[in-house]
Design a protein around this nucleic acid. Structure first.
Lengths: 201, 201, 201, 201
DNA sequence: AATGAATGAGGATTCATTCAT
DNA sequence: GATGAATGAATCCTCATTCAT
């Protein structure tokens, strides 16, 4: 097997995560067995344990992977080239697009994070995302597009809202009312941006 | 025993739900056994199965129960006596108050709902809540406090945001930043209410 | 309820046995629950225990009841009016007729009898039947229709064969080859009757 | 471990069946637990489920295994060397000998077969046995030892009779009257063989 | 006699994890 | 690294039986 490059080895971890993502979102975490994941990924059961210490680590991996993917959207450098007032709409567009693509995986946005180890990873991804949003908000305030506010908290709220909406729109409602959700989100953001200055807490 | 009223029969179901709520939020769903729930509820294992078909049904029951409790806040008739512009703040106050009281149960706001039977019940509670919010929004529009919008979708977004924030604030962050969350929420709502009229989708 | 006569009370025991017979033969003994039997019989669970000490007693009751029913065939006095050589054929005819009627119950002919208490009852029914057959055989020998033999053992063999055939014919094969079985049985009996005298063991 | 041949893998399944046979016949099916079977077989509980899908499949396996063992008797090539008229006696002798050896297992001859999958296997064993008997009967007819008859049905009847008798003789009566049963069986067979020609159905 | 809610011991089954190959 | 047979602890759930009404 001369073609067995590093990339292929790497792909085993990915294959497991991909398989797990599908199964977790189809049948739920508890109802999915390692054996199923291994089979779907085309590896042996034991191999799974070469890449993950236990079952829950696979869930965390799959979930954070997904969220990190969404985080990338905010870090896309081409956003900077846009006229500032277009950005929210474009972001919303991109986020929903991603959700639509991975519709069936959106259920992973709603998982419990228990172990403190997971929590750390979760906070890292969360921080990355809220920081990106916060930066954008600060920028907006600086340019006068947005009345001053606690940008960190606003970023957090927007992040929670976005995640929740993606989950509801795609995981629960299967994308049937996507347009409504997208437009309402855009509308809501615009209102925020045009709201009056308020005293900060 | 003439005192054996309907309420007593009900109390067994409730006792189980109460016990389950505590255990699920303390130790997590998977780590909680039926035997523990039964013992904590003061009933026999078999009795649990007189009221719930399986373990997951207990989880759903506990979660919906909790959400239905929050829904009551919106149906409080004394809200009608308030000056209209005070209502959002009062609502937020009340909701966070409830969250604070039941801090340890807020983790139940974020559960997977898989079976279609659960889904039905879930939609019922959801509909009740969003309808209450939607009514309030329509009212606000009629009185000129809010620019016209798709009140049903806005209600849904606000509901999702509220649930998500309660979960994050109390279940994930243990209430440490409650004030920040509450103020930001109030701030955000105010901005929405003062936002400019926008064309609807 | 003035109509509640002794017969009706008696019918409760019968109703339970009837329901049990149906369920045992449909789903098997283990797979049938007391609750199902009670419901099918139209009585409460507790009532079952007024008539039977435990589940196994119901099985024994249902099974022996059935076998006792078959035993009645041999004790029918009208058999005595028949020309002797017709008797085997008529008996076989009657037995298969009974099997056909209660086709679905024939599975009960193949049950394990474990407790010594059951065993006693079982032996009683068995003795009753084999005695009837044995008497007939002795009669046949006396009249010269049958070569002398150990009538008790022959009776036992014929009883086992008959029970086994009924079970196979109706419970396993659903009566599809009933004619074949009936004819072969008759044929076989005839050969026995015309066989040569043999020395006894 | 180069000795780890296919036979060893096979032996695990066999060990389970052997253990199960003993336990089922000693304590009864219901009273035997998987844990007991596993321990007696020297394997872990989970291992049992690598070879059998559920408890009942073990019962079926044990039963069919036993019956297949008895079937071997009929396929013994040395039978062909005997003078034809000796064969029945020898067969009966061998069958009872086998029953005596495995006295305690004879209870397994009388089990319920419910699942259609079991039924298939059962029919296979059944067919094998009746075919062997049928062949012998055809042979007997060809040589003039037996009046023509429906050999397939006769084979079936003899098979049922034999199984039933073994069960009664060894499982129910603990072999106390073995001699009587054996002689009666031999006697009965002889009579069949000397019976007059009869018209077939 | 009749009920059926409550019991709780008991067991089948599952499945994450390991480890010899 | 890769495998997958073997493990056995752990738990959901069942259901025969009881008993207060």
């Amino acid at each position: 097997m001369p073609e067995k490059s590093k990339g292929e080895v790497q792909s085993k971890r990915s294959a497991i995560l991909d398989a797990a993502r599908d199964l977790f979102t189809q049948k739920g975490y508890e109802e999915t067995t390692i054996a199923e994941i291994a089979q779907a990924a085309g590896v042996a059961v034991g191999t799974v344990y070469l890449y993950f210490r236990n079952k829950h680590e696979i869930l965390t991996g799959a979930s954070l992977d997904l969220e990190a993917g969404l985080a990338q959207i905010f870090l896309d450098p081409t956003l900077l080239d846009l006229p500032f007032e277009k950005v929210p709409e474009v972001l919303i567009e991109k986020i929903f697009h991603a959700g639509r693509q991975k519709k069936k995986h959106m259920a992973l946005l709603q998982i419990d994070v228990f172990s403190s180890e997971d929590m750390l990873q979760y906070k890292k991804v969360n921080a990355q995302l809220t920081e990106a949003i916060s930066t954008f908000l600060r920028n907006a305030i600086a340019r006068g597009y947005l009345a001053p506010c606690d940008t960190d908290m606003y970023a957090q709220l927007l992040y929670l809202l976005g995640r929740s909406v993606l989950h509801q729109c795609f995981a629960v409602e299967k994308g049937e009312r996507e347009d409504l959700y997208r437009h309402s989100m855009a509308d809501l953001i615009k209102r925020l941006f045009s709201g009056p200055p308020l005293s900060m807490s």
